[in-house]
């Protein structure tokens, strides 16, 4: 589709990405200890996304998955680490180069109610990105918006309507049209279906899959719903407290999860397609990202935790080709 597609190598490469939020305001920056007031939203995250791939990111609230999506797009400045897009390090780009790249990387937000300006018409919302990046004539712009709306299953006749005149599913279609009209290569989908009812969720998932094929897209698909991520992803990264604890091919990861947290997540999901099995739910809550536990961050809830887990942070180990897990239980090969 673009010159970039001809290149080899991953489309997105993330290395050691950290994002910390300092909660101290004003003079407190001088009077209070930084360590007690820093939220470790992302703490050393590395992965690649191949061209045309969908990488799913799963995790519970506060695990840093939304921060990850935004930091990858450089909507947030990372505290440390690098993000390369199509070979270019985003941190090294000047404003003009960054703007040119922004056309190629877009985002679809979770909340179709909050993410659309209530005082703009659909035509203005969907057309704005194109007006900035491609500057077509007004007539041409209108044509392109109409075409894009048709593509996402909305009637071009509704271009002059405002967001409140649409249902949740239709609004999410508007959000998708806005992201795709600039012909991006890479789209971060941040919980795009979690605000929607099941039957509407399926419509949007089917639309995202269809558009991916039609426009050769690469997705970073963030969700808390394992079944949704399992369905749409080629590979899945499982996040816990700002770190990736397991990363692997979707089917393999769902069938033979290696990390105790992934196993617990899979067990906790109530399913329609399995007999009711007796299971012991994982105890406790996710610890505060203000004060992540030492050693393995999952050790406070892990049924298999040892003394080693409480003191030493586990490195990523290879369970199988392309399947990595950060867990001491896999010391010296699969347990």
């Amino acid at each position: 589709m673009t010159a970039g597609m001809a290149q080899t190598g991953p489309l997105v490469a993330v290395r050691g990405l950290r994002k910390h939020y300092d909660l101290r305001r004003g003079l407190r920056r001088f009077t209070e200890d930084a360590r007690a007031h820093t939220v470790h939203a992302l703490d050393g995250v590395s992965f690649d996304i191949a061209r045309g791939e969908t990488l799913g990111v799963i995790g519970e609230s506060g695990c840093g998955k939304s921060t990850l999506g935004r930091t990858v797009l450089r909507l947030l400045e990372p505290t440390a680490g690098t993000v390369s897009f199509d070979g270019a390090d985003l941190a090294g780009l000047d404003a003009a180069a960054m703007k040119a790249l922004r056309r190629r990387m877009q985002i679809v937000f979770q909340d179709p109610y909050a993410s659309l300006n209530p005082r703009r018409t659909v035509e203005q919302i969907v057309g704005l990105g194109l007006a900035i990046h491609a500057r077509p004539s007004p007539t041409r712009l209108r044509e392109l918006v109409a075409e894009m709306l048709g593509r996402v299953g909305l009637s071009p006749a509704h271009m002059q309507r405002y967001p409140h005149q649409f249902s949740g599913g239709q609004r999410q279609r508007i959000g998708i049209a806005r992201a795709l009209i600039v012909e991006p290569d890479f789209v971060v989908c941040d919980e795009p279906v979690s605000a929607l009812d099941v039957s509407i969720q399926a419509q949007i998932l089917a639309l995202l899959e269809e558009l991916k094929r039609a426009f050769d897209l690469t997705y970073l698909f963030i969700s808390h719903d394992l079944a949704v991520v399992g369905h749409i992803s080629d590979r899945i990264a499982v996040m816990y407290l700002g770190q990736i604890v397991e990363l692997g091919p979707a089917r393999r990861l769902l069938q033979t999860p290696a990390h105790p947290y992934t196993q617990a997540l899979l067990e906790a999901v109530p399913r329609v397609d399995a007999e009711a099995q007796d299971h012991r739910p994982l105890g406790g809550d996710v610890p505060s990202p203000l004060k992540p536990p030492p050693g393995c961050r999952f050790h406070t809830r892990c049924p298999h935790a040892t003394a080693q887990c409480r003191s030493i942070a586990p490195e990523h180990r290879t369970v199988a080709p392309g399947h990595h897990v950060a867990c001491h239980l896999y010391e010296g090969g699969p347990a």
């Binding site: 039957s199 969720q201 399926a202 079944a227 769902l254």
Partner: peptide, 14 residues
């Protein structure tokens, strides 16, 4: 229309 964990590749029909 529901994605299934036991069969993630099953096409969903909205």
């Amino acid at each position: 229309s529901m994605p299934l964990l036991s069969d993630p590749d099953r096409p969903i029909q909205p």
